[in-house]
Design a binder for these strands. Structure first.
Lengths: 248, 248
DNA sequence: TTAAAATACGCAAAAAAGTGCAACATAAAG
DNA sequence: CTTTATGTTGCACTTTTTTGCGTATTTTAA
């Protein structure tokens, strides 16, 4: 079995079972565990899998673990600081969910007068603590995973809004595939929010750049601004800038 | 099971049940309690969970626990325990706001299957953490004081509901004046909720009995059940029982 | 205060991973 | 065809990681 062939087999196994053991792979392919380890190391280096003691985990399985760690907290704060500069007094703002958005809510300057539409419970809790912000909650069924409103009623309500700007915390952004997500209901909400806003801002930590999930939310062309914790001229952002999206 | 995989499992369990026991996890995953403790320590170190004696708590649970005052905490807990007995599988429940209601949400038995309609952000946060409860949020403008939805849109939505039971945390209850409140917008919401339910349950600590506020919400005759922390035959409750309201 | 439960700590065994090296294959260049 | 350069693989060895156990300590609840 060729090296390339072997690695593709491993990748399929990982994505199928969400985890593989070095020992199992070694036995299945009939090569030494050293070789398997070397393969896993290579696959992990290009970001296709996550290495772990005893084997490896699939990327999608692992994301939740990494993304809500304390490491990314500072990054999200720095993203939030950039984002609040886009907000001006009197604006009508559509706000999605996610921890990055929650940071945005915390970072609002005290004297700001703006109206926030959101379907995210954690975000709403933060917005409502702001001294002057007006908060409109978009009601409907609440998703247990993401703690945001989902469902047709919510989409209808969003469609009635004509917001100045929309902030979306996003899970995956790829130069080719654009904005993607893994939850069909959430995708519908995000699409509705994008339609209901004059300007769309995507907030994301750099780890989520160049990653893909299963369901399409929007093309890059539908985004106006991408905000990450990186400097705007970082090479990782090059393909997105080339697509005509403004980078902050 | 790989270490990382195990920690992901633990993290999911914590976020689902709000608390986990070291002993349960040890048995479920089939590793020693030492190993579980080490995992919990690592997860706590990166801020993903809150460690506690005997197990760990979810981060959100811990924070919401801290936010509420402790003055009448025990009384409200005892009220909540009485109230959950009224809830049965499959019920549609309208739920107001207030710390007593939040306690009710925390006291729900794990296996309960019910649908909760609410316009209270803190209550929704609690309901959504329950493993099986369905949560429908009634959206509209959020009041800064009470953190519940107010406004005509919400009232209209409530009118479309036909709930089995309605739980109201109340601010003032008087044998003559009935249920009163000081916030006009909140009063409209409460009235709508009472209209939309077959059975109305008022939850209150005894300090609020025999007090009045400025705006009338409902007559005593519109209430079906009053729950306080007192024993049902307490003399303070006599006038309410005489008005034909059931006391728990 | 006291007994039981839970935890921290040190330690040792087992498993897994990293390291250097030699064997082998492959392909390009002479 | 031979030689050389390159890359791949397996092996012996060391190092690191992980785990469970015994013991001492702390925490909890009565």
């Amino acid at each position: 079995m060729l090296k390339r062939e072997r690695q593709e087999f491993i990748l399929r196994e990982v994505n199928l079972h969400n985890r593989v053991l070095t020992s199992d792979l070694s036995e299945a392919i009939n090569v030494s565990e050293d070789t398997i380890r070397r393969d896993l190391a290579e696959l992990a280096e290009t970001g296709k899998i996550i290495k772990a003691h005893g084997g490896a985990l699939s990327k999608s399985f692992h994301t939740s673990f990494q993304i809500n760690g304390v490491y990314s907290h500072d990054k999200k704060k720095s993203i939030a600081r950039k984002a609040v500069n886009l907000i001006q007094d009197g604006m009508f703002i559509l706000s999605g969910g996610g921890t990055t958005i929650t940071e945005l809510a915390k970072a609002l300057p005290d004297q700001l007068q703006a109206t926030f539409f959101t379907g995210s419970l954690p975000a709403a809790i933060e917005y409502i603590q702001h001294p002057t912000a007006e908060v409109i909650f978009i009601g409907d069924r609440i998703s247990k995973n993401s703690r945001i409103t989902i469902g047709g009623d919510a989409i209808q309500k969003i469609a009635q809004i004509n917001a100045d700007i929309c902030f979306l915390g996003i899970n995956a952004l790829d130069p080719e595939l654009g904005l993607t997500d893994n939850d069909w209901e959430v995708v519908q909400i995000k699409k509705a929010m994008i339609r209901a806003s004059r300007k769309v801002v995507a907030l994301t930590i750099s780890e989520k750049l160049n990653t893909q999930q299963k369901i399409k939310v929007a093309d890059l062309s539908e985004l106006d601004i991408i905000i990450t914790e990186l400097a705007p001229d970082d090479p990782k952002l090059e393909p997105f800038r080339n697509a005509g999206v403004q980078i902050l």
